[in-house]
Design a protein around this nucleic acid. Structure first.
Length: 460
RNA sequence: GCCAGGAUGGCCGAAUGGUAAGGCGCACGCCUGGAAAGCGUGUUCCCUUUGGGAUUCUGGGUUCGAAUCCCAGUCCUGGCGCCA
């Protein structure tokens, strides 16, 4: 959320920001009109209240003096004021609620320095890593969804059986690899100075609103105990769509000390997303699913430090891919591709060599976004009530929040299965992960279970 | 889930229907050779800032007037119950 003062004083900056993001449906001019009318009514209400306070005070004095007659007259005047006040304030409250709602739906202002563009094609590649020293790949790389089923480490049909499309089982070495990755990432981030938290998985409406998932993006979230199109209030629960939500909100309404900052938290959680409207894109495999694991990095910093912190945060997330020796690139998002709450975002995209994509890497395969590192500046902090006191005698001010995935598991798994696969259909486990898998060096697969495997000729 | 008690500024804490004491912390000033102590001022948010308004967990209600009375909710503490 932007501050009312900023909105009032810099309407042109906001018009430009909306233009850059390609947003024209938020009714910003109406917002300004509502604000103006609200302030007008607020001022009149304040004057009436001032008079009422004086009269009330007088009533107290008169009563103490025993002057009942004058007290009665004052009470009558007070009653009149009360009626007028109720009308004006009821209208002012409506306007303020409207104003608040409109402010909640206004996106953050993109940073000056980020590129201008329409969509992801206009993002700017910042750097690539790991391609010069890439390993020798099989002539035909098998996509992870086929290889995963061949090795019987991924099972989509049985996932759909128990939870529906978009859910899957990891089995045997697949499940072990998942846990190994989580433990490796957590260890790495602990070396980087992160304090680990394990948050609640259901989060309430207030928290979802604080980080910006609500009110605009309710369709993407899993509602607990009700359908998404039913009305909700502050206490209703949603399944964690990213650990950003519980972790960023954990200090809501707190005042932190300067000495507390920066705070660096990491959190492993499962994440749940409806991915509404995404059917038909990347439906095969585990690139886009309704439940996935992720290690999230969340930073709380002083405003002056957030620029530098964003650069370091990207490096901390990249370190995961470097240690796994997976080739990747970093892109700076253009204003048109920026998410709602962010002022500046870098994406980290790992190279998955099996399927070719349009506008993909020149050597084939596709880019998979495994992390999005964003500086939200005070946008989330203002919604959440997240402040710190710069000096002990100074008033509290909003701090800056940042976060990055470190990393999203399924897409890393895709890259591992495709990049580390061998001619014979086995998968080499990168050295970094072997300590987490009892020294195991390869995934050789398991025999499939059940009669269907016999019919398919995979078992006798 | 039931019963009882509770929630007041950065922190502690008083006020039980008449308009939020006091203390601590912190900052500045006075005082001092310097410091401590002492004294004074300041230390939430909003508005159109020589001023005004709001704010006693949240939302309703009663009243001319609510921290105070009533209703609903959230959280905390204690007791009972249930539970992996």
């Amino acid at each position: 959320m932007l501050s009312r003062q900023f909105v009032r004083e810099n309407p042109d900056a906001i018009r430009e920001a909306l233009e850059r993001r390609g947003i024209d449906d938020v009714g910003f001019e109406d917002l300004l009109a509502v604000d103006e009318e609200w302030r007008e009514l607020k001022s009149r209400g304040d004057d009436l209240r001032h008079e009422r306070n004086q009269v009330s005070n007088r009533i107290g004095e008169l009563k103490r003096e025993g002057n009942e007659a004058d007290a009665e007259a004052a009470i009558e005047r007070s009653q009149q004021l009360k009626e007028t006040l109720q009308e004006i304030e009821a209208r002012a409250d409506e306007l303020e609620a409207d104003l608040e709602q409109r402010l909640l739906e206004l996106p953050n202002v993109p940073r000056e320095e980020i590129p201008t563009g329409q969509n992801e094609r206009d993002n700017e590649e910042v750097r690539r890593h790991g391609f010069e020293t890439a390993r020798e790949l099989p002539a035909d790389v098998t996509p992870h969804y086929d290889l995963g089923e061949d090795l019987d480490v991924l099972d989509f049909e049985r996932g759909a059986k128990v939870a529906g499309g978009g859910f899957y089982f990891l089995k045997g070495d697949g499940a072990r690899l998942e846990h190994a990755l989580v433990r490796f990432m957590r260890d790495l981030h602990r070396e980087q100075g992160y304090t680990e938290v394990f948050p609640p998985i259901p989060v309430n409406t207030t928290a979802m609103t604080g980080t910006g998932q609500l009110p605009k993006f309710a369709d993407d979230a899993f509602r607990v105990g009700a359908r998404n199109d039913q009305p909700y209030d502050d206490d209703d629960l949603w399944l964690c769509p990213t650990a950003e939500v519980p972790v960023t909100n954990m200090y809501a309404d707190d005042i932190l000390l300067r000495d507390d900052l920066p705070i660096k938290h990491q959190a492993y959680t499962p994440n749940f997303r409806r991915e509404a409207g995404e059917h038909g894109t990347e439906t095969r495999g585990i690139a886009r699913v309704h439940q996935f694991n992720k290690v999230e990095l969340v930073n709380f910093v002083e405003p002056d430090d957030s620029d530098d912190r964003l650069e370091s945060l990207v490096a901390e997330a990249e370190a995961v891919l470097r240690r796994l020796d997976l080739p990747y690139r970093v892109v700076l998002l253009c204003d048109g591709d920026l998410t709602f709450a962010s002022a500046k975002t870098y994406d980290i995209e790992v190279w998955a060599p099996a399927d070719d994509m349009a506008h993909g890497p020149d050597r084939g395969g596709r880019w998979l976004e495994v992390s999005s590192a964003s500086n939200f500046e005070a946008f989330q902090a203002r919604r959440i009530g997240l402040r710190y006191r710069p000096e002990r005698h100074e008033s509290a001010e909003y701090l800056h929040t940042l976060n990055a995935s470190g990393l999203a598991l399924p897409r890393v798994l895709i890259a591992l299965l495709e990049y580390y696969q061998n001619e014979d259909g086995t998968v080499t486990i990168p050295e970094t992960l072997r300590p987490y898998m009892d020294g195991q060096e390869r995934i050789e697969g398991h025999d499939p279970v059940g009669e269907s495997a016999v019919g398919a000729g995979k078992r006798e």
